[in-house]
Design a protein around this nucleic acid. Sequence first.
DNA 1: TGATAATGGTGATTAATGTCACTATGAAAA
DNA 2: TTTTCATAGTGACATTAATCACCATTATCA
Lengths: 212, 212
Amino acid sequence: MMSISKLINENFPELRDRGLAAEISDSGRFIRVKEGEKLMDYGSEIVHMPLLISGALKILRMNKDASELILYYLQAGETCAMSLTCCLANQKSEIRAVAEEDSEIILLPAQLLDSWMLKYPTWKNFVMQTYQARFVELLNAIDSIAFKKMDERLLQYLIDKSTINNNHVLETTHQKIAEELNSTREVISRLLKQLENQEKIELGRNRIVVKF
Amino acid sequence: MMSISKLINENFPELRDRGLAAEISDSGRFIRVKEGEKLMDYGSEIVHMPLLISGALKILRMNKDASELILYYLQAGETCAMSLTCCLANQKSEIRAVAEEDSEIILLPAQLLDSWMLKYPTWKNFVMQTYQARFVELLNAIDSIAFKKMDERLLQYLIDKSTINNNHVLETTHQKIAEELNSTREVISRLLKQLENQEKIELGRNRIVVKF
DNA sequence: TGATAATGGTGATTAATGTCACTATGAAAA
DNA sequence: TTTTCATAGTGACATTAATCACCATTATCA
């Protein structure tokens, strides 16, 4: 396994700073998570901030009745804005984070992050950029659900998912898609059929090929 | 008119810091805006960050076809997270900000805000708290449009609006409500009628009384 | 005062989505 | 191999919201 220092250097160029790198090496913890593993859940305490080295996380919002909605994905070189706010404000998580694929992550302890803001302008800039990026992602999620119809949302979902997984072939079920879009299987099945007729995708069992 | 220092001291207790207060006094500019006045618009450059002294702003998201959607309100003692990200990242606005009522605002020049982050922990904490709060507001907006039906959203809208205006009597039209909820007048008229039948509101011309 | 515009009430219709019921098929397990 | 389960296809129907058409009332302006 590579050193934490090296991993940060390669995946987070904006964090290249001698002092900061040393602190991250000292206090960061490298972990691997399997696809489907939950990293944060609604209401859970957040004591770490995850820096994503490889793989991808999906960030979901849930309703009381357990229906959920995907907000956005995180990729290598990114981090979760929510854990930032939660870490700094000592609050419970407002979202769920699940590994979209097997991932490698460096966990940073919450209590240090705040002091780094003043100590390392590099860190402060990274944090602010993260906020900017996640803010924009949330606005995109809002655009999608407020202004788009389900067929458009579905196609965008498929494109996003295949981009994140770096694979035109998605191994998933209509049921799972319905859950992440806060819809129902039947609706998704029918819309997928439409997309297939439009030759934008090909359908198979547990399998969708996105043509783009 | 009160000094900027005094205004900040009274409305932003979390910014009480001798050095910071002096800088805000030096560089801040006090302005008044009338109800309905636009402070930021989609795509506009943001060169100031507004600290709200009195009144209220509403923050809206727009679609290409000019339909819009209210995201949240800002009140005295609050500021706009979007102008923060935009100021710091030198980006265009992603949202529209409109005065919900006559308001008093202190404008801070963008180029200073970043340096204050390192100089004044007080400022840094304020900025981080602002992000946390706006993040939560955006998630609430998402919950509302993703998981609630229009009648629930409408009632919540009326309650929020009367809370912000500190008045049970709202002077508005069905058309305007429809625009802010990204719906249509007829739908809103019918749902308002329902709410009136449920004795949750009373309707008049240009006038809705919220009973709660 | 009379004309015009803004506001809002309402029926009829359509479109989008969700719900229910049932079937078919392929995969995994007994 | 047989059984069972997960997956998905589809018709019928219900619900929510949007759209269209038209009218009534009130406010504003010439």
